[in-house]
Write a protein that binds this DNA or RNA. Structure first.
Lengths: 212, 212
DNA sequence: GTACAAATCAAACGTTTGTTTAACTCCTTT
DNA sequence: AAAGGAGTTAAACAAACGTTTGATTTGTAC
């Protein structure tokens, strides 16, 4: 039977998907290999067979996430480099929020990597170098243009963190946000949020330039 | 012997302290009762005897943290209610950063509660209602005054989150921050940070008022 | 000093964790 | 059709977890 043949031979792919979902929801420590195998409709021992163990699966899932993230949310969000820095800042923030909060079928890629920031696992260093630092450098470039003359590295750094902090808040503190303000996050709400953070940050930046 | 007498009768206090330190570092799930008992130089069964179990100890530790936090960092940071909203915002942000990042002997109180935000335990609801919502309401009051006329609840809410996000970033994402920007956080650095976040947010708020 | 409740202790309990084992099934090769 | 490797499976494994037990020690009241 073709379907049976298929089912038996893509166990690796099903484990990657199930692993991503469970790791994103429960973190590396909180996730259990039994839960992952069950969700993938695979045998418990398949994880050790295909990936060498829990940590091997986690690494493979991250590896795949890097690629998917780059493909699904290009860092410039479709806005050309020639666009003004303000427009590129808006695109960056929107892309980042969608990446982290999108409820789509592949939504766990962003959640997975952001979770590493607050709850580090043994592979945090790779996540920072491969996923976080490129994002950071791009944002630092935009901020540097916006600050223009008074762009000493300290000012750029503090501003970058203020912007990243606003974005990450909605993911890292989601359990509290949903308790303080009950309500769902759909795509429209996310874009509203991106607009607020962009406007808020641009006003702060313009003020700095004005008084610098 | 007086010291022996003392040692045997403050097991409860030693467990509270050791529990706070370990819970703050490893989280509720990550912490183990064996590690806590060892650090407290107490027997493993003492936790169940004095607090009913791991969760009971965690609740008691939080209860104590609420009191310590209120005493050590009064929410107005010594600034009278009659002071202008800008000065009160500065005091609020400074107090919050010191509370979360202070490296003193009692520093784990803040870390403990902030950890709940990103990595919820079974008692998150109580933490939100007793510790987070009062902080939030106070900040919302200050922001409401600053926004004045255009203070519709949506604008206040988004602004409050932008400010909280900037503050929480330095704790929730500390493992990444320290990798992107190696260097230590001493008290002077923290006040520098508080000054930046305050100025950044006030510029954003003034801009909003100006264009409202 | 004897009795009694509170507190401490070493040991064991029952789960759950990630991992390993050995038998088994399926598909390809010859 | 026989052989052999790749993949799957149920079962068992050792370690770590929170909790419980029953004996023992300690401080206090009589």
């Amino acid at each position: 039977m073709a379907t049976e043949h298929q089912r038996r031979h893509d166990t690796r792919q099903r484990l990657l998907r199930a692993g991503g979902e469970v790791f994103a929801r429960d973190g590396f420590r909180g996730a259990t290999v039994r839960r992952i195998a069950q969700r993938a409709k695979a045998n418990l021992a398949a994880i050790a067979y295909h990936f060498g163990g829990k940590e091997g699966l986690y690494l493979a899932v991250l590896e795949q996430s890097f690629a998917v993230a780059r493909a699904k949310y290009p860092p410039d969000m479709g806005v050309a480099t020639e666009a003004g820095p303000e427009e590129r800042l808006r695109a960056f923030i929107t892309a980042m929020l969608l990446w982290m909060l999108d409820k789509g079928k592949l939504s766990w890629h962003g959640k997975l990597m952001i979770r590493e920031l607050a709850d580090p696992s043994p592979v945090l260093d790779r996540v920072v170098e491969e996923a976080i630092r490129p994002l950071h450098d791009r944002l630092a470039g935009i901020v540097g243009e916006l600050l223009a003359a008074e762009a000493d590295s300290d000012a750029v750094r503090l501003t970058v963190m203020s912007i990243l902090g606003q974005c990450l808040f909605y993911r890292n503190s989601q359990p509290v946000v949903s308790r303080l303000y009950p309500g769902r996050f759909d795509a429209a709400r996310i874009r509203e949020l991106a607009e607020h953070i962009t406007a808020f940050s641009l006003r702060a930046l313009r003020g700095e330039r004005g008084t610098g």
